[in-house]
Design a protein around this nucleic acid. Sequence first.
DNA 1: GTACCTGCAAATGTTTTGCAGTACG
DNA 2: CGTACTGCAAAACATTTGCAGGTAC
Lengths: 160, 160
Amino acid sequence: MSGVRSDEELYRIAIDYLRAEKSKLTPPREAIIRTSLSFAAPFHAEQLLAAARLRDRLISVATVYRLLPLLVKSGVLREIDLKHDSHQHYEVNRAPTTGHIVCQDCQQVIEVQDACLTLRENFVANSMGFTPTKLSLRIEAACQDLHEKGHCPRQDGATP
Amino acid sequence: MSGVRSDEELYRIAIDYLRAEKSKLTPPREAIIRTSLSFAAPFHAEQLLAAARLRDRLISVATVYRLLPLLVKSGVLREIDLKHDSHQHYEVNRAPTTGHIVCQDCQQVIEVQDACLTLRENFVANSMGFTPTKLSLRIEAACQDLHEKGHCPRQDGATP
DNA sequence: GTACCTGCAAATGTTTTGCAGTACG
DNA sequence: CGTACTGCAAAACATTTGCAGGTAC
């Protein structure tokens, strides 16, 4: 019991969700789902479209935008806030996450896993009379490695 | 020393910031600044424009959109994520905040103050090699009061 | 006097929607 | 076979920008 869901598992979940919703599994949708599950990092609609077109050349923007909310509802993807550009970003929901660090220097998004934080977030919300349905922590940060050592282990071609 | 800054204090800070930046204090700007400081709850550009026009009828959209980033840089306002609609939301930076609870039932935004959470957020980021520049916690939640008692103390005309 | 600011309108860029045709179940 | 999905193009939407004046300092 690792708590991490495989791509194949997630693909099944997506398929089952569509079936349960009386939605249809078409070639464009299959290409988009498989493509979305192939992302290791956060992505947005435009990137997903471009990548999906490598599998099925004719996929249209609308199909991607119409499918994304369904994949979020199925629990296969989750929406995240990167506040980087004006795109809505998504990531594969392989395992629960506490939040994200968005590094201003190395431009990367690092996932944060901290049970203690999540616990306290829930506690605080509960003690204020709320039952959390979604916890989302974003930490905009400066890269210590870059500033102290002059380079960052995550990406050495960074722009300071 | 309450840690809470008054509107007059914030107004001064905004004015001083503009002066320091060699920016000019025009009637439209004064109206927008005073209006923004009159908000008790989060607001977005469109709401700010509408409210500011009550003071100065001719204020244009562009003036609001051009001033907002300056007010954020001055520290008088802060950007927040409500993920409610597609607007960028702002709130008056009267005191530091840990995060926000966005209630799905009573439609309100409640500020969260929890030093323990903030401490741990900083600790986690530091131990991952980052120096946080902005911490932003959003908790989407269901209103316990509404579900348990059938009404919510914050807003009894809520939509269940 | 000269930056800098203004309002207006047009441009931008992402996401949504209407529609006629197509294909999944 | 009907309903849901498709691609396309146009629309919607918040926000940004260019420009010709106007104004604070």
